[in-house]
Structure formats: structure tokens, C-alpha cells
Design a protein around this nucleic acid. Structure first.
Length: 197
DNA sequence: CCCTGATTCGC
DNA sequence: GCGAATCAGG
């Protein structure tokens, strides 16, 4: 397969939509994700706000620091070495559905930033709960000793009885739970707004 | 081990 | 230009 105009267009489209290289490769067919990534680079469209790229970006920067950029180091007062970053949401893990770009090195963010479909990541969606309910049906019912790094560790049932097991479904990226359970495990905001008395 | 993208380098 | 191999990270 070659990179015809149409295929490139589809590549651009999907990449812009935030699809992963493997997904794009699968959709295109006849190419591997490596081919897709390679093409993406050659096309010049690269940086997309992703965790991997972000982490790698810092590495790359450190490695090939030839660009004459000024690292802003505003430290007029050498009193405190480390600036205490205000983290009000310490209690809530709150995984941002939209990973904001840590810092645009060079205005690389296109104007029409295509955001991935984000229905409404707020509150606990009934769908998520239903999903969990369904997941529990086909959970692998693993025992504690059967859990591995990539098995969902969501407990199901009553630990005091025999009706207790762990979900055990495959997790993906370093998360402790499967997709469904991640949805209910991490709830950015509580349904309670303000405690009023 | 599953996945992600980034980079390299022979073709 | 292409992409497999490799690298680096979650």
C-alpha cells in the first residue's frame, strides 16, 4: 500500500481526532502503526497532547537543546527555592478528560483544535454505573493472589463471604482498574456541591 | 504484558 | 519517502 492522497487525508483526519496510530493503521489497512507514525512525522503534524509525547518531549528537548529559547526562571526572591504550587484538588484525583498541553514551546497549537468527543465527563454517568454492572457479570472473578499488574483490581462482593472476587479484566495504561471501573473509581467532582447546614 | 508515540537508519 | 527496529514511557 502507498500513501495515496485519500489515505493521507484519512490519516490527517483521524490523527486530528486524537485517534491512536494503531487505530489509524488498523483503519487504513496494509500499514503498521509504525508506518502511520512515520508518516505523521514526515507530514509535519506531530505533537498532539498525549502523555507519552509530553514525557518524551521533555527528553527530546533536553537531548537536543539547540533552540535559542529562554527558560523563564522568574525567581526574584531566592527565599523559597521551590514555589509551592497550589493544588486545591488534592483529595480528588480528577483525571482531566482533556490533557492540557503542559506548555507550548512554540505556538504549535492549531487554531481549530479538534477536540475528541467529550459528551459530559462530569458527574457520575448512569451509563458508567450500568457498564460496571455489566462488567461484573463477565468479570474473571480473580482471587487476590491472581491479580497482576494488568488485571482490574476492583473488588466485587463482600470480602467476609465467599461471594468476593476481583474484577480481573484487563487494564490498560498503568491504571489499577479496567476501563469501566476507572470510570467510577475516579470521580472528579462529588455530587455534593456545598455542605450547607 | 498490554499499550502509546518518537527516533533512527537502511532501503 | 518509507517503515521496521528500537527506544522511552504509562
Amino acid at each position: 500500500m502507498s500513501w495515496t492522497d485519500e489515505r493521507v487525508e484519512l490519516l490527517k483526519k483521524m490523527w486530528g481526532e486524537g485517534q491512536s496510530a494503531s487505530q489509524i493503521a488498523k483503519e487504513l489497512g496494509g500499514v503498521t502503526r509504525n508506518a502511520v507514525i512515520g508518516k505523521v512525522h514526515r507530514l509535519g503534524l506531530s505533537n498532539r497532547a498525549t502523555s507519552a509525547s509530553a514525557a518524551d518531549a521533555s527528553k527530546t528537548e533536553a537531548k537536543a537543546k539547540a533552540a535559542p529559547k529562554k527558560e523563564a526562571a522568574p525567581k526574584p526572591k531566592p527565599k523559597e527555592a521551590a514555589a509551592p504550587a497550589p493544588e486545591p484538588a488534592a483529595a480528588a484525583p480528577a483525571p482531566a478528560p482533556r490533557p492540557a498541553v503542559s506548555s507550548a514551546r512554540k505556538a504549535i497549537i492549531p487554531a481549530g483544535q479538534p477536540l475528541p468527543p467529550q459528551p459530559s465527563a462530569n458527574e457520575i454517568s448512569p451509563e458508567a454505573l450500568a457498564k460496571v454492572n455489566e462488567v461484573e457479570k463477565k468479570s474473571k472473578k480473580l482471587g487476590l493472589l491472581e491479580l497482576t499488574e494488568r488485571t482490574c483490581k476492583w473488588p466485587v462482593g463482600d470480602p467476609a463471604t465467599e461471594d468476593f472476587w476481583f474484577c480481573g479484566l484487563p487494564v490498560q495504561a498503568g491504571k489499577p482498574y479496567c476501563e469501566a471501573h476507572v470510570g467510577v473509581a475516579f470521580q472528579p467532582m462529588s455530587s455534593r456541591r456545598d455542605r450547607r447546614r
